[in-house]
Amino acid sequence: MFGNSVLQLNDSVYKLNKIDSIQFETLKFYVSAIEFWNNSAPVWIEPNSFHLMDASDSNTLKLAFKVPSDMIYAEIKFKLGIDSLTNVSGAIGGDLDPIKGMYWTWQSGYVNFKLEGKSNLCRSRKHEFQFHLGGYTHPYNSLQTISLLTSNLQDVSIKFDLKTFLSDVDLENKPSVMSPNKDALILSNQLGKLFKIKE
C-alpha cells in the first residue's frame, strides 16, 4: 500500500507531499515463523515457515495454510525477516536460495527487507534509493516480530503503508542503507510497526 492506493511497481508515481515524486522498482521481504494464536497460546505453527514476498509477483503475496478445519484463532504472529539460526546454517534451497537476490555476498546474512526505487528527493546518483535491511547479530539484529489481532477466520488481509515508512526516512540525505548497522535497525523497528490488519 501507499497511502490509500495499492502499490504498483515501476511506472506508477507516488507522492509524499505536493512537490516530490517516488517510483518503486523492487519490494521484496521475508515473512517467517507464521503462527496462529488463541487465548495467549499457539494453536497452529507453520512448519518450515519461510516465505519470500515479492511485489513483482502477486502469487507470492498470497499465502494459504492447511490448518485443522475447526481451528479458532484470534491472533496471527509472524516474523519480518530471517532468524539468526537460519542465517548461520549454510546453503538452503527454495525461497531461501541465495539466487533469490536476498543474500549479502560480501558479508554473510539474509536481507530481510529490500525496497528500491527513485525519487527526486534523493541527492544520490540518478536519484535512486535503496534500502536493504537485515542483520542477525547483536546489537544489530533487525528481525521483527509482528502480532496482529483479527476476528476474521477465513481470509485475512494484512497491509503495510510505505508512505508512512518513507515519511520517516531521510530520503534526501540517507537514500541508501545497505548493510547491517544502526540505521538498518532503526528502519526495521519502524517497519515492524506498520503491519496492520486490513478490515
Partner: peptide, 25 residues
C-alpha cells in the same frame, strides 16, 4: 570473519567486481 559458513563463501568471490565479477543468478 565476514563469512559465517563455508557454503556461503563462494558467493563472495563470484560476485566481487574485482574478483570474478559475476552474479550467482
Amino acid at each position: 570473519g565476514a563469512i559465517n559458513h563455508l557454503d556461503m563463501q563462494a558467493l563472495a568471490p563470484i560476485s566481487h567486481p574485482d574478483e570474478m565479477g559475476e552474479s550467482i543468478e
